[in-house]
């Protein structure tokens, strides 16, 4: 690997202090985005600070109405966790569609949402479930966390410590997978929050990254069924257009994936 200085702190405080001292540092979790990006020379951090060895950042807890997943918990450990399976099975399904088995052993939920790739899966779940992102400094509501392409509310040096998911009444996720990269051509997470409100988030679709889909939320609030979306048209105004699909194709996928996600949620 190209020149960089590797650090493996044992605590969050140590990680923050290493970050403050370095000239151009990056945090490393599973490394399955950062290391490929470094190989391509799209990033050349002076220091990489590995968060995966910090035991307080790993683990899952369910208590009352909240499922808490600590940030450096790997995809594999999330999808095989009994509390996650029981509380939010849609999260297990989403995780099983992510990358491949070897990647799922390394990737972490905190790494995924801190990176906020516009086609990543976890941002859709975090936003649709109305989760709270906790950091070493504060709590950030999902609606305030994602700020567009590869951009979040995180400040320089701030570390995500855990994500608190309100346990929904029902939830589902459906994704049109890119067959080579396994990223979402479009993925939609639907959730009926306890108390009745519906929240829907789409990833891989918009040029501005993960987004709420208000038209679908309104229709599902009135009638929680796939057919409630039959007459809905999604605007292709800000949709991604590339060799894999046009803006209109992705706009249609938002609707179709939402319908499949509702079927899955039941």
């Amino acid at each position: 690997m190209y020149q960089t200085t590797y650090h493996r702190p044992a605590s969050i405080d140590e990680a923050v202090s290493l970050f403050a001292k370095a000239s151009d540092p990056k945090y490393l979790a599973g490394g399955h985005t950062l290391l490929p990006v470094m190989k391509q020379r799209l990033a050349a951090p002076s220091d990489v600070i590995d968060l995966a060895g910090i035991s307080e950042l790993i683990g899952v807890e369910a208590s009352g109405d909240t499922l808490t997943i600590r940030a450096a918990t790997t995809y594999y450990d999330i999808m095989t966790n009994a509390d996650v399976k029981k509380a939010i099975p849609a999260l297990v399904h989403l995780t099983s569609l992510l990358g491949d088995p070897a990647v799922r052993y390394r990737g972490t939920i905190g790494g995924s949402i801190a990176n906020n790739d516009p086609a990543a899966d976890y941002p859709a779940a975090v936003l649709a479930l109305g989760a709270t992102v906790k950091t070493n400094k504060r709590s950030i509501a999902a609606d305030d966390f994602f700020k567009g392409l590869f951009t979040t509310a995180l400040e320089d040096g701030e570390i995500i410590t855990e994500i608190g998911f309100p346990i929904p009444e029902r939830a589902g996720y459906a994704k049109m997978r890119h067959p080579a990269s396994r990223f979402a051509l479009t993925g939609v997470f639907v959730a009926r929050i306890k108390g009745g409100d519906v929240r829907v988030a789409a990833t891989g679709a918009s040029q501005n990254g993960v987004m709420r889909v208000r038209a679908i939320e309104a229709a599902l609030n009135a009638d929680w069924s796939p057919s409630a979306l039959d007459a809905i048209g999604i605007s292709d105004a800000d949709m991604i257009a590339d060799i894999h699909g046009s803006a209109a194709y992705r706009a249609n996928l938002v609707k179709v994936m939402a319908q499949r996600a509702i079927r899955q949620a039941g």
């Binding site: 399955h32 290391l35 590995d50 088995p101 070897a102 052993y105 390394r106």
Partner: peptide
């Protein structure tokens, strides 16, 4: 060398991972 093909797969503590995308420090 981009963690897609799996030719570099080894086991770390029993888990099959892609060794082209792991630093020895990790």
């Amino acid at each position: 060398d981009t963690s897609q093909c799996g030719a570099c797969t080894v086991h770390i503590d029993g888990r099959a991972v892609k060794s082209c995308t792991v630093l020895v420090g990790q």
